[in-house]
Structures are given as structure tokens and as C-alpha cells.
Amino acid sequence: MAPGCKLQLSVMATRPVEIGPAGLHAARAIEHLRLARGLTQQQLAVRCTALDRPMTNTALSRTERARRRCDIDDLVTIAVALGVSPSAVLPLPTAHGPLSHAADIQGVLLG
């Protein structure tokens, strides 16, 4: 480094990023779809692992309770393991904006 130059370091946020309305909807939809199919968290975890995305029932539990963020790779694998399109666990756009804050889970099952 040249004399007189300052080194700047970026600092990562120390608080976790909150789970927003789409994440909350997805968490509820995953649990609802799993229960509708008569699967335990352990059984769904085994299905996800068989799809080359290792997952524990603890991770699924935390995801369903919105205590763990669900990344896109997890979301796609969970949806496939549940036999639905990944879009089936996401909220639908509404006239009030891109996300439904009070999305009806029944629409997920009928869609």
C-alpha cells in the first residue's frame, strides 16, 4: 500500500436480517403443504437430502417457524420434495403491491 493511503474495511451487520412477509408466507406454506401430504419434518428432510440438498429436520423446523432464512436453493428443493412448483410456496402479487401480506394458504393448495 502506498504511503498516506488508508485501508478501508467494510463491516458486516451484527444483527440478523429479518424475515419479511414473503419469507413468512413461504414458511407457513411449506408447513401447510408438508402436513397436507402427511409428511413429518424428518421425512421431508430425507426427501431433500435424496435430492442432493442435505437438510435436517431441525433446519426444516426452524424454516417453518421462520427462525431460519430459507435460501433459494432450499426453497426449490423443498418444493420439489413436496411435489409442487417453487412458485407454489411464494405469495402471489396483489393489487396492493408485489407481495400479499395476508396471503391465503388455501390458494397455495388450490394453485
Rank of each mutant, 00 (worst) to 15 (best):
N57C: 07
L110G: 12
G38E: 02
S61F: 03
M55E: 06
R28M: 14
A102P: 01
V89N: 03
H101S: 07
E18K: 13
A36V: 04
M1P: 15
C70N: 04
A59E: 09
M12D: 08
A102R: 11
R37G: 04
I30P: 03
C5F: 13
L75Q: 11
L33N: 02
I72K: 06
L90I: 07
G20Q: 09
A50T: 10
A81D: 02
C5R: 10
T40K: 06
N57M: 13
G97Q: 08
C70F: 01
A50Q: 15
R68A: 14
P93W: 05
V108I: 10
R68C: 07
A22N: 09
R47N: 11
T14G: 14
N57W: 00
S85I: 03
D104E: 09
R69E: 05
G38K: 02
I72W: 02
G83E: 01
Q8G: 07
G83I: 03
Q106F: 03
L75Y: 01
T40V: 10
L60N: 01
K6F: 10
T58V: 15
V76F: 00
Q42G: 10
I105R: 01
P91C: 13
A2I: 09
L9F: 07
D73K: 13
I72P: 09
A13W: 04
T14S: 14
R69T: 11
T40Q: 05
Q42I: 11
D104H: 03
A22W: 10
D74W: 09
V84R: 08
M55K: 05
H25M: 11
L24D: 03
V108N: 00
I19H: 05
Q106K: 06
V108G: 07
L92C: 10
A95S: 11
L51M: 15
L24I: 09
C48K: 00
L51I: 09
Q106E: 13
L9N: 04
V76D: 03
M1H: 15
A102V: 03
P54S: 13
A59V: 10
R28E: 11
A29E: 01
E31Y: 08
K6D: 10
D104S: 12
N57I: 00
A95E: 14
L24V: 06
A45E: 00
L60E: 08
T63S: 14
T40L: 08
E64A: 06
V80D: 05
V46S: 09
